[in-house]
């Protein structure tokens, strides 16, 4: 039940940020669906492995793949869809907890949340890179194959 509430909240946050970033029309629907996918995948991986890095990494890869596919269907740049869809994963909660612990002088907690923050941000960045590189490879291979086919005919 909490998971369902979280996913619905993720959808609304993605919609809200899409509006803030001036996204119109059917792209709004795509980003809303993407917000659900992001957090859905995150929750699935996190409940299975209890590993924040892995959860962020897999969720980012899933959403990046979704963004690459939808960008080709909707004929827009990938970043336009990706940015609002990634919003639910931005580690604002950990930043806040790190800050409050800093004020309350819990250096152990500060280190824990700071570490988590770095892991999450790194995982998101690597997830984006892995899929965008894979996508480029696929496109190159596709172009290569079609060219060879044409040459053979």
């Amino acid at each position: 039940m909490t998971y369902l509430v979280q996913i619905i909240a993720a959808v609304f946050s993605a919609i809200g940020f899409s509006l803030l970033f001036n996204i119109h029309g059917r792209k709004l629907i795509i980003t809303a669906v993407g917000g659900a996918i992001t957090w859905g995948v995150y929750l699935i991986v996190f409940t299975q492995t209890e590993n924040v890095f892995l959860a962020c990494f897999v969720a980012t890869m899933a959403i990046m793949a979704f963004a690459e596919i939808m960008a080709r269907i909707a004929k827009t740049p990938v970043i336009i869809l990706l940015v609002p869809m990634l919003v639910p994963m931005v580690p604002g909660g950990d930043l806040y907890r790190m800050m409050t612990n800093l004020v309350m002088d819990n250096s152990g907690q500060v280190r824990f949340y700071g570490h988590q923050l770095v892991m999450e941000v790194g995982a998101i960045a690597f997830g984006i890179i892995v899929i965008s590189t894979a996508m480029q490879l696929i496109l190159k291979m596709h172009a290569h194959i079609t060219e060879q086919r044409r040459a053979r005919h």
Binding site: A9, F12, G16, L19
Partner: peptide, 26 residues
């Protein structure tokens, strides 16, 4: 001439996001 949502929509979007995130964080 790029269409914009305007100021009112910025408020609405922020309220929606902030509310959603508060629910999101429990």
């Amino acid at each position: 001439n790029t269409r914009h949502y305007g100021k009112r929509m910025r408020y609405i979007a922020s309220v929606v996001s902030a509310t959603a995130f508060t629910v999101f964080f429990g």
